[in-house]
């Protein structure tokens, strides 16, 4: 009797594995794109609600954990506020200087683009910084390949899949992400790729080009919908490829991708 039970069980197991393997095999034919679209249409309100609930719980627990520090924090803030008031006057001058520097470094001005603000409603549950999901989709004019930035013109990724009311943003740190980039200070050009969610790497930099630790990396604007001048990060470490043909460098992103709440999709230029 136990032997018979095991046999029936094994048959079920083999059948289940066969179904799964069949599912894996028909993947490349994009067979599931409509199913995924339907799933996200159904999941959209739940994702939004659950994500906000998660954020609210996160914020609430942060407040609870830090409640003891509030008194000290308050005194510190009052002191700092007085200092800031004094500094405010000089900031106007610095703003003008900053705008001039942006122009000189050819960084994109923030008001140059038609932006679609969007909230994050989901992210890579493996925590590997591979993708995020935003609450804007086809119905909002979002299309595949559009760059996604944060408020001050820092690039975080590009739209890789679009659904009716939501889209998937492939983050720069994903291993399949690849964009043309250049060094602001030396104009050296290369290809910026993700390192399996661990960071960024600029490669294919010719040996004759100069790159230095601390240099800023921006998009070079070559190819695709990616405009020139979106800030990516700073060079942290430089090395040569194993064949010594090219230079490569580890790039530290300007922002932590897991802390994002709001992003902007660049739909086009104004």
């Amino acid at each position: 009797m136990p032997k018979k039970l095991l046999t029936s069980k094994l048959i079920k197991l083999i059948l289940a594995i066969a179904i799964c393997l069949a599912l894996i095999l028909i993947n490349p034919k994009n067979f599931f794109a409509p199913v995924r679209g339907f799933f996200f249409a159904l999941a959209y309100p739940f994702q939004k609600t659950f994500y906000f609930a998660g954020q609210a719980t996160h914020n609430f627990s942060s407040v609870l954990f830090s409640i003891g520090d509030y008194k000290k924090e308050n005194e510190k803030l009052i002191r700092e506020n007085n200092e800031f008031l004094a500094r405010l006057a000089s900031l106007e001058d610095q703003k003008k200087e900053n705008d001039e520097l942006r122009r000189q470094l050819e960084l994109s001005p923030r008001d140059k683009y038609e932006l679609e603000s969007s909230l994050i409603i989901g992210q890579d549950q493996r925590g590997s910084g591979s993708w995020i999901m935003i609450d804007r989709g086809k119905s909002d004019g979002v299309a595949e390949g559009m760059p996604v930035i944060v408020y001050d013109g820092i690039l975080v990724g590009k739209i890789s899949e679009v659904y009716d009311k939501s889209s998937k943003v492939l983050l720069l740190s994903d291993s399949s992400s690849s964009i043309n980039a250049s060094d602001v200070q030396t104009s050296a050009k290369g290809i910026l790729t993700g390192e399996y969610g661990l960071g960024l790497m600029i490669g294919m930099v010719e040996q004759t080009d100069i790159i230095k630790v601390g240099d800023d990396i921006i998009t070079s604007g070559l190819g695709g919908l990616m405009p020139r001048g979106l800030l990516v990060g700073k060079i942290e470490q430089i090395s040569n490829t194993s064949d010594k043909l090219f230079q490569q460098a580890v790039v530290r992103p300007k922002i932590k991708y897991s802390d994002l709440n709001v992003v902007f999709v660049i739909k086009g230029e104004r």
């Binding site: 999941a43 739940f46 994702q47 659950f50 998660g54 954020q55 996160h58 549950q125 925590g127």
Partner: peptide, 17 residues
């Protein structure tokens, strides 16, 4: 599935879900 992909990633931002 929604809990795993939307609630917990927001609750434990940047850590293990």
């Amino acid at each position: 599935v929604i809990l795993e992909t939307s609630f917990f990633p927001a609750l434990f931002a940047g850590t293990i879900v």
